[in-house]
């Protein structure tokens, strides 16, 4: 698996570290309800197919990336910087 980093180009999987579902970038407000926080911290869609997720190019430019990837085939569909 190679991820096409927008800053560094296509790089090997070994250079990246994985955080999880891209929704982790959308933290609820500090005063959000307990239910919202439970959803954010613990619940996942966990789809079989396209999945938006957060990777960091930890052994490269250290940019955080929002990657769309097919969890069944491991095909990378798109890569963009988180901000």
């Amino acid at each position: 698996m190679r991820i096409n980093c927008p800053l560094c180009g296509a790089r090997d999987l070994r250079e990246f570290s994985y955080l999880g579902d891209a929704r982790l970038a959308d933290r609820p407000a500090a005063d959000a309800s307990a239910q919202d926080w439970q959803d954010y911290v613990y619940l996942r869609d966990n789809p079989a197919g396209p999945h938006a997720e957060l990777w960091q190019h930890a052994q490269g430019c250290r940019a955080w990336l929002r990657v769309r990837r097919n969890t069944v085939t491991h095909e990378i569909l798109s890569v963009e910087r988180t901000r």
């Binding site: 999987l13 570290s17 994985y18 966990n46 079989a48 969890t71 069944v72």
Partner: peptide
């Protein structure tokens, strides 16, 4: 393999 997967196979790293 550390990332979400439904492929019943892994990667080289």
């Amino acid at each position: 393999d550390f990332y979400n997967s439904y492929a019943a196979r892994g990667n080289m790293p």
